[in-house]
């Protein structure tokens, strides 16, 4: 079946099997491999992307369910070569090691800050309850989210996607 969605500001129309998961569509059809798949059970959150302003686990959404939606992945966060405040904070606070959870963790963190611009340590942890990391012990991820919060509302937003980017 045909599916159309806006991914990182770019309109994409593709032919997919009905069972194609959004995560595989992003990775295999659109070549956006920052979004990783770490489990089968909607547990790990590595595949978290933002669909219409809300974080979702793209391994548990059919590509067809994103018809007409705006999808943002890690690759769509930087603007004009400038990192998103959450990306920058993950770097400065050493919030990533192997990097496999990072894409989902960054997207989920933006979701946390969209919901609560000034979270406490505990609120960050609760906001990230759906994202697993084996390397960092979460300590520096929490620090990164708290640091990103200092950047103000931009930390809880994704770049607006009016611009149509050519393929």
């Amino acid at each position: 079946m045909q599916v159309s969605m806006t991914v990182n500001g770019q309109q994409r129309t593709d032919e997919v099997e009905p069972r194609m998961l959004l995560a595989h569509h992003l990775r295999d059809n659109l070549g956006l491999t920052a979004t990783n798949i770490g489990c089968d059970s909607t547990s790990c959150g590595a595949c978290t992307v933002i669909v219409d302003g809300l974080t979702v686990k793209s391994c548990t959404v059919l590509a067809l369910q994103a018809e007409g939606s705006e999808v943002t992945t890690l690759e769509g966060l930087s603007t004009d070569g400038e990192m998103h405040p959450v990306q920058a904070a993950f770097r400065s606070e050493h919030g990533l090691q192997c990097g496999f959870c990072t894409s989902g963790m960054v997207m989920a963190s933006i979701g946390v800050l969209a919901d609560n611009p000034n979270p406490t340590d505990r609120e960050v942890r609760e906001g990230l309850e759906g994202n697993l990391c084996r390397c960092t012990g979460y300590h520096n991820i929490v620090q990164a989210v708290l640091k990103a919060a200092e950047a103000g509302p931009a930390a809880g937003q994704v770049p607006s996607s009016q611009q149509e980017v050519s393929a």
Binding site: T33, A34, L77, R91, H94, G99, S103
Partner: peptide
């Protein structure tokens, strides 16, 4: 801060898959 991170954070690392 890590020199690895800018790519990991913007494009994603490149794992085997």
């Amino acid at each position: 801060v890590r020199t690895e991170d800018p790519l990991f954070l913007t494009r994603g690392a490149v794992y085997t898959d």
